[in-house]
């Protein structure tokens, strides 16, 4: 957005697949609100003028009473309920589609911390307070927070979601228009909350390729995870045939894992993350609860890298 040129607009730019749909629902609801408001105000003002006490009136008029009155009440209640349920259905349907995961998205890890946004592409390229994405490509953000609750808000995408400590949250979007859009933090996160802002840069497919190409061989994100895996000595237990037996990690991700407690869990990203931070919570069946927690040793980005590596390891083995 060029300041000085567009100083005023009623709607923010529409730059994602859902933006137009959200606006349409909003405008219809707004129209309904305005209609009811105008009706109410017209009636109130009309009655106030017509029935003001100073006005002379010829005869006593009958009030609405008894069955007539009740009929009006029921009519109103039913009408309001029907309209409200209609809007609920519309919005629920849209919401459901907004939060339905994509099949095979471009995945980017995002970390919020006081007071900046960090993004890690799977190619290994990292950014701060900027996020480059290609136009027309389904994107999934895997978000977590280093400290307090933040909220990832892109008005032009009509998209917002909280970013929590200790947990992955995800959102999906497909940008439809090249350009640069504002990214805000929408959840109060401390002193510089209003400066925790960034830009989403939507590039053409070729532009994005070129931008990625300039990353200068920082290595793939999963590669960083592999290095951590080795430096931390994970292989010491998790490779087959070691003294302290631990579950082999190339057979975990994406599978249904039997736990020592008898339950089964789907080993998704969240499970891998939990297993690094709180390893003795959901122990795989047949193994002892002996792994220490890595909560103190690892930054959030490191955990993301490890998870990315383990995901790749698991996927490669399928």
């Amino acid at each position: 957005m060029k300041p000085g040129v567009v100083m005023f607009a009623w709607l923010p730019e529409q730059a994602s697949t859902v933006a137009g749909e959200v606006d349409r629902l909003f405008l219809w609801m707004l129209a309904f609100c305005v209609l009811i408001l105008v009706l109410t105000v017209a009636l109130v003002v009309g009655f106030c003028v017509k029935y003001r006490s100073s006005k002379k009136r010829d005869s006593e008029e009958e009030l609405l009473e008894g069955a007539k009155q009740r009929r009006l009440e029921y009519l109103w209640i039913v009408a309001a309920t029907v309209v409200f349920l209609g809007f609920f259905g519309w919005s629920a349907n849209l919401y459901f589609r907004m939060f339905k995961p994509y099949e095979d998205p471009l995945r980017i890890y995002v970390v919020g911390k006081q007071w900046m946004w960090k993004a890690q592409h799977e190619t290994g390229r990292g950014e701060i307070n900027e996020l480059h994405v290609p136009v027309g490509t389904p994107v999934e953000l895997v978000m977590s927070s280093q400290d307090v609750i933040h909220s990832f808000f892109v008005p032009a995408f009509r998209l917002k979601h909280d970013v929590l400590p200790g947990r992955y949250t995800r959102i999906h979007f497909t940008a439809t228009k090249e350009g640069s859009y504002e990214l805000f933090c929408a959840e109060l996160c401390g002193t510089e909350h209003s400066e925790m802002i960034g830009r989403i840069v939507v590039l053409s497919e070729e532009g994005y390729e070129a931008w990625q190409g300039r990353s200068g061989g920082a290595g793939r994100f999963a590669e960083k995870g592999r290095q951590l895996y080795e430096n931390l000595g994970c292989a010491g237990c998790h490779e087959p045939g070691r003294l302290v037996p631990a579950p082999p990690l190339d057979e975990v991700y994406g599978r249904s894992v039997a736990l020592a407690s008898g339950a089964r869990v789907e080993a998704d990203r969240q499970y891998l993350r939990d297993a690094i931070l709180a390893p003795n919570q959901e122990v795989v069946a047949g193994f002892e609860a002996v792994m220490p927690s890595y909560r103190e040793q690892l930054e959030n980005e490191d955990i993301d890298a490890l998870v990315a590596y383990l995901v790749e390891k698991g996927a490669a083995h399928e």
């Binding site: 909003f26 609801m29 609920f88 919005s91 917002k160």
Partner: peptide, 15 residues
């Protein structure tokens, strides 16, 4: 009502 519509609230929440 507009805020109760969850799809719209995603955009206007905390604004």
């Amino acid at each position: 009502l507009i805020l109760a519509a969850v799809a719209v609230d995603v955009h206007v929440h905390d604004t």
